[in-house]
Design a protein around this nucleic acid. Structure first.
Lengths: 200, 200, 200, 200
DNA sequence: AATGAATGAGGGTTCATTCAT
DNA sequence: GATGAATGAACCCTCATTCAT
């Protein structure tokens, strides 16, 4: 960002621009994301955009960043809530909880998710998705390490890598493609997948 | 395509154009894929290009189409070779074979795969990847149906959906991200994943 | 230039663009020299400009180049005509002839001269004016060398440098500033200046 | 200027702005001379800038004005010092002294001189250079009138015009182009040029 | 008076597509 | 069919200037 918006008015401006970018993406798609369009939607002049963002790309980056940050936060917040109580015994509830949290997070703004996932060059999401993956992977590793008896797989980091990629993409595809089975079925399958894997 | 090129010369031009598109993508990236650039590389005039393709998109579509067709063919060809002999008993060899075939297919043109997967809007690959997925899913279903005793999962089509998405993305990410473990480790994990899943 | 315009049509296009640049400069001034304005005046699309010129600057460069080339040619052509006959004796006729030729050349398009000299950053004309200066300086040196008896100055190259700068600027300023004395008076003074200098 | 800054604080701001303009020109060149840049360098807000200057041009004009004023003052000051003692007889010392003074003045801020002379539209310097020329021309006329025996040229004002233009440009080009001969050689040539001219 | 955020007209340039030859 | 010159809408971005605070 070009200037640090310290004043309230400036901050509001930045928010308006980013929000406008998000709305344009969501409602009109990636191709409509021109600097002039964002300016119009933000009810701001094109020049104002460039007071705070060095170029068009950086606006998009910010939208992406925020989206995945939200997703990350929702996932980890949900997890904190749901993993804790499962101390008692049903270990696989963790997998279910993680996927459930991920699904919930992805379902909060499916239109934006669709545009980000399908209309943008995938590389644009990369860094941010990697961050999310790492976060979840870390949570997973921690969990596995705390309860070593759950997994019979030799390499925990490899195990985490496999699980995260599988979970993430299953969740993503279920949200984006809306195949004909319901959410609980998906969760059941994932529990089976993960459970079987860890048991092998 | 605008017209069916019946004459040899025309067919040759179409080939030249598609090949040029593929080369530009692979060697110069998506941003360099302009109609003029393709025309230059194809040693064809921009006008001629529009004799056979209604717009730029259709050229790209054709490149994508062919790429995923090749991948599909390699996968199914490999499978035909490898599944057949495993009649004897080691059922999980199938999963290994499928993934192996998929990896082999994805490894044949990693540069193009990278551009297609990372620089293009993901939606562009969608239709074609869906086709590939369907093919593999069908092979899987067929296999599962022929050997019902392997799977204890209730819904075969759901099971296939889960397996294909997991396999595909694990293979893809392994090829694209080159994580630090070798191919056999990946195959081992996938066998464990699939084996455990089917056994659940 | 981006493409070598080999075909007649292309050449015509290039000519139209340069001519338009020249006209815009002459009639509307440097600030009006925008790519769009040039395109309009050339009755050409903005895109066409960029078929032959990599950027706006190169159009201007070409106008400048041509202007000073014309001036150079007129000067040297005039000189060839006028110096030759003066074999007989009146040596200072040469100085008069050179200045006269230069004046004549500068007077052929005074409006363009004014814009180039006054509205452009001087550096833009530099290279081209340097070329002109060199040409005239060379002619001068040749002349002085052929008739060593005319000059009593020690260093001919220095002498030429001094004379060319003095002559050039006197001529230029007379054309641009139109001071209140007539052309013959200027020539008289220059003859006196040069004559006295060489005699010193 | 928009208002006459009567208060010390205001005067200080005007000074800061002009000084900033000068520094930007000298250190960063004409293209960098934006109102925002000047404001930043002057540590003043863009808005304040417009309290004292109606537009960007007027800032530049002031910088130019001051530069040529300085040059003028240096020249005339030097001349006052140097012409007086030459009562005795060596008349050409005056030409030498004038040129020497001019060279000295031009050499005091060669970077600014270069930007003003080469990067600006020449017309921007016109008015101010005209003033300088007039001043020197007047000094010259006065001198010639006081010592009519020196010049055999008929029209003193024309004579002065010729001499000033020749001197000025020779000095300017020597400073800007740094040709390969030293300052004394230049002065020698100019003395010869002027001496011969006046004697003709 | 001073600020500095906001403005917006207008600039140079690209490239998918067309069409006269 | 083939050509490639020509098109022009639309893009991103700058910066002199204004004005609410």
């Amino acid at each position: 960002m070009r200037k640090q918006p310290r004043q309230a008015r400036s901050k509001a401006m930045v928010e308006r621009i980013i929000e406008a970018g998000r709305r344009v993406l969501t409602e009109e798609g990636y191709d409509a994301l021109t600097t002039n369009r964002v300016a119009v939607v933000a009810e701001v002049s094109p020049g104002s955009l460039y007071q705070y963002f060095p170029d068009k790309t950086s606006i998009l980056d910010e939208v992406i960043e925020r989206y995945w940050d939200e997703v990350s936060e929702r996932v980890t917040a949900s997890l904190a809530d749901r993993i804790a109580p499962t101390d008692d015994g049903d270990d696989l509830a963790a997998a279910r909880a993680i996927t459930d949290a991920l699904l919930a997070a992805l379902e909060t703004d499916p239109n934006l998710l669709r545009v980000l996932s399908e209309e943008l060059p995938a590389a644009r999401n990369r860094r941010r998705r990697a961050t999310l993956e790492r976060r979840v992977r870390d949570l997973l590793s921690t969990y596995l390490t705390l309860r070593p008896e759950i997994s019979s797989r030799p390499d925990p980091s490899l195990t985490a890598w496999v699980m995260v990629i599988a979970l993430e993409n299953l969740a993503l595809r279920w949200v984006l493609d809306a195949p004909g089975f319901d959410r609980d079925r998906l969760l059941d399958e994932i529990v089976a997948l993960v459970g079987g894997y860890l048991a092998s």
